[in-house]
């Protein structure tokens, strides 16, 4: 069933704008991009397939790709968030609230330092050298803990 554009707009406008604003400093650019996203959604509405993705994942993918295109167009002073690049090979079916809750549960089971490293590295996009400084640890110690954290998480999220 084709979702209703008015309903999508009402439900996702805040999320789309919030995601874009976190990456694009210029408010006018952020508003233009938000409008682009909903224009694309409207144009592609008939191609939406709920057997492949939820509405949320679909809207998110369009939003993320619109932000990536914006940075690739090379706006002066803009820098592409490394977390936005190269997510090829990741199953978009994983992008749902249930998996996020599973990740939260897995993180709470990790020792505190390992959890901190994962959040600072993958949510905040900080390099391990900076994380080492923040945690008052050597780079080598953080690198080792990072590998341990990935190993423990891999056990819960098998590829």
């Amino acid at each position: 069933m084709t979702p209703d554009i008015a309903q999508i707009y009402a439900q996702y406008k805040g999320k789309v704008m919030g995601y874009i604003s976190a990456r694009v400093n210029n408010h006018a650019d952020a508003e233009d991009l938000c409008a682009d996203v909903f224009e694309k959604i409207m144009r592609r509405l008939s191609t939406f397939d709920d057997t492949k993705a939820s509405v949320s994942t679909w809207v998110f993918t369009i939003t993320r790709n619109t932000v990536i295109d914006h940075f690739r167009r090379g706006r002066p002073g803009s820098e592409l968030d490394e977390n936005l690049v190269d997510d090829s090979g990741v199953d978009e079916g994983l992008l749902n609230s249930e998996t996020l809750t599973q990740l939260a549960n897995a993180l709470t089971k990790l020792p505190e330092q390992l959890r901190d490293i994962i959040v600072l590295r993958y949510y905040d996009g900080k390099p391990l050298t900076e994380i080492a400084e923040m945690m008052n640890l050597s780079y080598g110690a953080v690198k080792l803990r990072h590998q341990n954290a990935l190993m423990l998480l891999r056990e819960q999220f098998s590829d």
């Binding site: 998110f60 997510d87 949510y123």
Partner: peptide, 19 residues
Amino acid sequence: MEKKLKSLFDYQKFESNPA
């Protein structure tokens, strides 16, 4: 695993899962 974490945390910035 790293790509998966980057994608999930990026999606979190959109979805804001409370947990």
